[in-house]
Nucleic acid binder design. Sequence first.
DNA 1: ATGCAGTCCTGTAAGC
DNA 2: TGCTTACAGGACTGCA
Length: 324
Amino acid sequence: MPELPEVETVARDLKPLLTGKTIQGAWWSGKKLRLPWQEEWTSYVRGWAFRDVKRRAKWLVFYLGKPEEPGSDQNDFRFPKLIAHLGMTGQLTIIQGGTLGDPSSLPEDHVHLRFDLVHRPKPAVRAGGKKVGEPPGFQSLRFRDIRRFGGIHLARNQVELDTFFEKHRLGPEPWDCLLQDWKQALARTNRAIKAVLLDQTVISGVGNIYADECLHAAGIHPCRPASSLDTLEASRLLNQSGEVMRRAIENRGSTIRDYVGGENLNGRNQEFLQVYGREGLPCSTCASVLLRWTVGGRSSHFCPKCQQVPRHLGAPRKAREGRC
DNA sequence: ATGCAGTCCTGTAAGC
DNA sequence: TGCTTACAGGACTGCA
């Protein structure tokens, strides 16, 4: 399930592979996506070149430009941008006469969008009698999404991009969130802290896997009312959230089931998860058996010893049948 | 306004 | 073997 670290990995993988490439043609499966593609965009994108790839929260932004002006203003406000969300099972990979990464896995099902690419700026040159230039075979950017919770949106200019993101009211990235703002956000709600971590308008990029990891790293029970966290706990949770994300990016994200990076490679961070998917196994810190409860409608993994509710706050609200 | 449940969507796995 | 059912969850909608 792509969260901030997975989306960052895709952005880093795709940037060098896409920059300078021109969209020769596009194809859409016609299937409805959570983020709907419009048929007219299929022809609109033809002829634009990729200039840059960036990530904001769990969103990818592809900056397009004119292929004949490679040196001109990188992110001209007049130029279109493609905005992608991977949802739960979205994959954005470069296909190059086959896939990069493991060539044995080339799933062709559930492909919904394809952008066929040409590389114009550097024509093939002769070097020692051999032509050096484009590798043989086609190349394209492909969007595959089994559950169709993701999609790609076209913003025709910067204004449309800004409008799009304003609508989503995204909170800051974990490492950009000011402690003062974070404390205020927690203080004004009694929702479970886990639900607040998942709220993209408060802090962005954290999904179910990393919310559990962040809470464990900070030693905070997922059911704790956000307003019950003291300054030290709030600060610890914010700092650990940044650290957990940073480490996950270093490990190229977590592949639980469908996630692959832009080069079609699995992540490695699943090997380092401390609590997610580890119910019934011993806590790496204290060897207590890890539990799984439903918090805010999501499965939540935690250590009952490392993530205790402070004595003065009493037992977590009605811990009946593993939920709160 | 707040916070929860329901919805979308398909593959996987458990249970009978 | 083949069927039904539950579950996975990001982001949105609708309701109390």
